[in-house]
Computed example of a mutant assay.
Amino acid sequence: MQVTYILMAVIGLVTYFAWERPELHRRLMLNPYTVVHEKKYYQLITSGFVHNNGIHLLLNLFTLYFFGLAIEQIFYTYFGELGLVLYILLFITAVIVANIPTTIKHKNNYNYNSLGASGGVSALVMAFILFDPIRDLCLYAIICLPGYILGGLFIVYSIIMSKRNTDNINHDAHLFGAIYGVIFTLLLRPSTFSYFIEAIF
């Protein structure tokens, strides 16, 4: 069984069980105040495995399905069995890294919570774009653009929305997850950068 399917199943099951147990749901989500002041560091990871509602869960699993399978195959092609470990490492560490800026930003706000796999998923999307920058990617099956353009727009949009802070979406997690995905991929395979530049020009 491919690792992506296992990851999707784990995320789905943890989310479901957390929905059935509100107290567990509360403990697993990211609350920056308790992370910093009560040292509940595990929330930096567990928050990536719980979701707010069905739509939230399905959107992340849908994206994980397409880009996770692609990155899993790419990593396996380049690194063999080690690539599967690196793939999981990318996702898990991206969830953690994506949550750190939010934790610092809201460390004294007891009422702020964040949850979802978006940080890890954003990292996988950006990693894929580095490997295949000119392939068209579609936003909600409506707007289709080359990956490098859509990725750039996504980063700009995340920065703008993070500054506005007018909705309940953690745009910081999207932004830093995406940036981390780029850094992780380039450190892992530096030649990807030259391929990316050659492909788009």
Rank of each mutant, 00 (worst) to 15 (best):
Y33M: 02
T93Q: 01
R164H: 11
L64R: 03
V95C: 00
G120N: 00
R27N: 07
G177L: 02
L30F: 08
T34W: 11
A123C: 07
N109F: 00
T46F: 13
S194F: 12
N99A: 06
G116C: 09
Y87E: 01
D132L: 12
G151Q: 04
M1P: 12
V182P: 02
L89E: 03
R135I: 14
S118G: 13
N60P: 15
Y76G: 12
T15P: 07
F176Q: 01
F62W: 14
G116T: 08
Y16S: 15
M29F: 13
N60Y: 09
Y87P: 01
K163M: 15
I160F: 09
V35A: 03
Y33Q: 01
G152W: 05
L187C: 06
Q2E: 13
N99G: 02
G12A: 09
V85S: 09
L145M: 03
T63K: 07
V85H: 12
G48D: 01
I183V: 03
G119Y: 07
G119Q: 12
L89Y: 05
S162R: 10
N60S: 10
L115N: 04
I197L: 10
Y33S: 02
T15D: 12
R164N: 07
L84N: 03
L13K: 15
S191L: 08
S114T: 01
V182N: 03
I11W: 05
V125I: 12
G54C: 11
G83Q: 01
I88F: 07
N113W: 08
M126W: 04
E23F: 10
T77L: 14
V3H: 03
S194M: 11
N52R: 14
V85E: 08
F131P: 03
I159W: 08
S162L: 12
L124V: 05
E20I: 11
T46C: 11
Y180A: 02
E20V: 11
G181H: 01
F79G: 00
E72K: 04
V97Y: 00
Y195P: 07
N113R: 09
F62R: 15
V85A: 10
L84I: 08
T103V: 04
N168M: 12
L90C: 05
V50N: 09
G177W: 05
V121Y: 01
P190G: 06
F79Q: 02
S118W: 06
S122K: 08
H37Q: 03
N52Y: 10
N109M: 02
E38T: 06
Y5G: 10
F62G: 11
N52Q: 13
Y42P: 07
A123G: 07
P32G: 03
V14T: 15
V14F: 14
D136W: 14
P146H: 02
N53D: 11
L145P: 00
I134V: 09
Y5A: 09
M161C: 15
L69F: 14
L175F: 07
Y140L: 10
G68A: 08
S194L: 13
L69T: 11
G80K: 06
G147R: 03
T166Y: 05
L82R: 14
M29Q: 15
H51F: 15
F67Q: 13
